[in-house]
Design a protein around this nucleic acid. Sequence first.
DNA 1: AATGAATGAGCTTTCATTCAT
DNA 2: CATGAATGAAAGCTCATTCAT
Lengths: 200, 200, 200, 200
Amino acid sequence: MAETHSKPDKRQAIIEAALDLIAANGFHGTPTSQIAAEAGVGTGSIYRYFKDKEDLIHQVFNHVADQISRAILRDRDPDAPLREQYLRLGFNTFYFMVKNPKIQAFNEQYFSSPFGVSHKREILVMDRTHRDAGDVPPVHGLLKSGRDQQIIKDLPLGVLLALAFAPIVFVARDVSTGVLEMEPETVQKIIEACWDAIKR
Amino acid sequence: MAETHSKPDKRQAIIEAALDLIAANGFHGTPTSQIAAEAGVGTGSIYRYFKDKEDLIHQVFNHVADQISRAILRDRDPDAPLREQYLRLGFNTFYFMVKNPKIQAFNEQYFSSPFGVSHKREILVMDRTHRDAGDVPPVHGLLKSGRDQQIIKDLPLGVLLALAFAPIVFVARDVSTGVLEMEPETVQKIIEACWDAIKR
Amino acid sequence: MAETHSKPDKRQAIIEAALDLIAANGFHGTPTSQIAAEAGVGTGSIYRYFKDKEDLIHQVFNHVADQISRAILRDRDPDAPLREQYLRLGFNTFYFMVKNPKIQAFNEQYFSSPFGVSHKREILVMDRTHRDAGDVPPVHGLLKSGRDQQIIKDLPLGVLLALAFAPIVFVARDVSTGVLEMEPETVQKIIEACWDAIKR
Amino acid sequence: MAETHSKPDKRQAIIEAALDLIAANGFHGTPTSQIAAEAGVGTGSIYRYFKDKEDLIHQVFNHVADQISRAILRDRDPDAPLREQYLRLGFNTFYFMVKNPKIQAFNEQYFSSPFGVSHKREILVMDRTHRDAGDVPPVHGLLKSGRDQQIIKDLPLGVLLALAFAPIVFVARDVSTGVLEMEPETVQKIIEACWDAIKR
DNA sequence: AATGAATGAGCTTTCATTCAT
DNA sequence: CATGAATGAAAGCTCATTCAT
């Protein structure tokens, strides 16, 4: 009786296939024919759901960005102390990236390629489910609020974002690719170190 | 025996042309024919100096990595306090990236593409002129030494590198691309914040 | 038993849509999907009425040819002098073509494309409503009769047809496409000139 | 030692191949791959000489138009009586078309397709070798001059062209395609009939 | 050594046609 | 009967690479 996803949803299958293959082989290492094959659809079907390959890539990014922001904001407690809230975001970020290396790989390629130039990195950490409502993205809100309360350094938001998350993302990548080993307690230390960077 | 710049050095011209064009248009947006034209050589000549396009790209990276490490290590004073030495590295990194957006753009593409997977990011900050001699790269040495003296946190080197430089690189990119404005005194604050992240 | 226009007649709608679009964009500039959309039917429905796209095109031609011959033969008076009868045909031809540029455009494409090779141009001027009855087509009959009475030159019918109508069609096209302006009295002169060509 | 056309001239080979195939199968019935094969070159080579398929088609037309105008104007004697001059043009036109059915077929397709809309039919009869010199095209000149001398009817040039040449071209096509048989003396009569159409 | 014309594999994309609903 | 999502063959075009000059 549950027909929640009764139809195979080819659109989604294509997006997933594109994500997997692009993460592994890059945009230009991934022919549309291969995406179609991986998704189990005919080559022409891609063009029923997406204007062209570039559109598909942007849609993959949207899909990915949704997942990322949902994961990062998981379990947040708006009433907890700011430091706690930040640590939670940091953990979520780190583990999501480590557990989803394909998303991480796709994301990096997207942002460092001509496709991603128009996008600001910041939108990633927006609460995309509410972004159309005009709300302040929670991550921004957290940092701003801490800055107002003089808990966090008086620096531009973009700078605070970099200090607070760039090292986490870098380390996560090195862990994913096997360049770096990581013991669980070290993760805690890294995020606390980022806190040291932004706190007054 | 002086052969300072006796031959026009087409090899170098090709590498420079490739760097410029790839930074602007991406790997796959840059045909070899265009590189040859920009370098002022025939298309065939590329294959006299490089095995294939992939080889050329790796050589461009080597060229770029040399410049980066040279720039980062500029004016270092091995006898200055560790904090001073780190601040110098941070400044050098930031300003080099901001002043060389093409190198930055190329670098990011390289690392986030299938080309760069095999390379560890760390080698970037090695003193590449001596890396074959088995020396310890100076940046690593600095962090290690600080860790030994219990001035810097007890974290793996890769992590310390991420904490110390990732935010700087991120911010530099946003400044290059115009996403972020940056007053000179803010730069100082950013690097000091990174120091807060790694110092005990 | 009145079934005058009981069913929406999708077949006719498809033919009209095809005529419009092909006249504007050419055979190959007109996808079947577009024809279906314009006709207000599903893409698949085309194949219920026509074997394939080629068949559809031939049917459009038949439709067009019917209209042309009906228009050309309008108001003819079999008892009028031959010259009068011819002038009438010429006028009808000219004004029909000028007022129906889409039909003219389709027709030309059809005849000069591989589709039309098999068709003889002559059938156009046949009285298509009676062609299956074995009658002599009226236009042919007129010319033949004039030739027999030694009013019209002793030339093969195909040649007489070309002399009598080709200039009219050419000029009509140029008028339709705006290449040529045409004052009403000039039309009279053109058709009389064609009469000069065929008359003894 | 004559090395007049020492190199195979691929450009010309491609144009000839395109002409042959398009005349037989139409623009869209002729893949570029087939043209390349027929011309004995690689598919990519087409794009060294022509921007794209459309450009190739226009170049084929230019080639064809040159040949036509050269052929039509062959043996003309500017000092002969106007009627003689016209008859010569008519003969040339007829025989060239009959002997070069591929050119005729290509030409018709070109003019009745979206490719040819921008071109006026008239330019065909220009002396293309001198068209850049701003000269009056000889065929136009002839008709104009006849009109001025009140030998030819007082009708617009475009109309005179249609009266003088359309029937010839029509008949030539029917002869080429086998629809019409033609005895030599009939040709003479046809062209004289066209003269009757334009003469006062 | 240097060139650039030539190549053709491989890409993205279109569209006539089918068939499950 | 009607539909339109799905298909995949086939098209136009690009570009890394080769090789005769």
